[in-house]
Amino acid sequence: MSAWLMQPRTGGLLLLAAVMVAIYLAAPNNFYLDVAIQIGLNAMVVVGLNLLIGYAGQISLGHAGFFGLGAYASAVLPVHLGVPPLAAPFVGMLVVGLLAFLVARPVLRLKGHYLAMATLGLGLLVFMLLTNESQFTGGPDGMAVERLRIFGERISGKDWWYLITCVMLLLSVWLTLNLIDSPTGRALRALHDSQIAAQVAGVDVARFKVIAFVYSAMLASLAGSMSALYSGFVTPDKAGFLHSIELVIMVVLGGMGSTFGGIIGAAVLTSLPQFLTVFAEYEHMILGAILMAVMIFLRRGLLPAILDALRRRRLS
């Protein structure tokens, strides 16, 4: 029984759900719920991105591009193509998946810094497209998003969106953990450590990189769509370089190759600026200093460091 609880897929998911309920009950006002929703949406992206970066070892500095495309899918599709708002996120996810699939092979042939550059370039191209095609996207100022309706009911309250975000995050984590503990997950981790040994064992390395890339892109797109529907407004910044970097920082901060670590990374990096605003103009200096300090002293990330500390206490 306790072994069953210690499994990430069971115990971890239960713990995550418990934390979600606790936050809902403890949140003193809607502001905290709003931050929690932002965290949840970022965490969805990070969970997928972690599969790509942490498990498969393939860096991407452009995933905000997919997030942005998803966000604009739920804004643009209903207005310009008459797609119902409820279907738009899924249509967007399919389109983004297809797009990611088309670019994945040539991009993922690249290694290390070259891969970083290529993904960065792709993200920037998406950003420029969203910024400049203003007849569809409203340009740099962004555009309003039609509210989501389910059975004629308008879904706009924080409570509704908190529920939706929690369910979708739990689902993403469950699916991702499933992948990790399967032949697909083993192939991804193997190609991270030794691409050649994986190939020799019969792993079609290119194919598995594509799988991780497309999967993470589609999750990012879905989270982007949800964020647009939730806030009722989209701007190109969502697809920008800084957001891409933030997402990667969340992965590394929480702990590469740790799905729940990524969620912690998302929670810390999303809420930190909210709390740092009290430092007014010193905000950026403090954020930069915290980032450097965490990465220097806890270089494997927050969750692995916490788990190590717990283990040491249990041993002593």
Binding site: I249, V252, L287, A289, I290, L291, M292, M295
Partner: peptide
């Protein structure tokens, strides 16, 4: 990420 932290700090 450390150098990105440094760049945010310097900014």
């Amino acid at each position: 990420i450390i150098t990105i932290g440094a760049s945010i700090f310097l900014r």
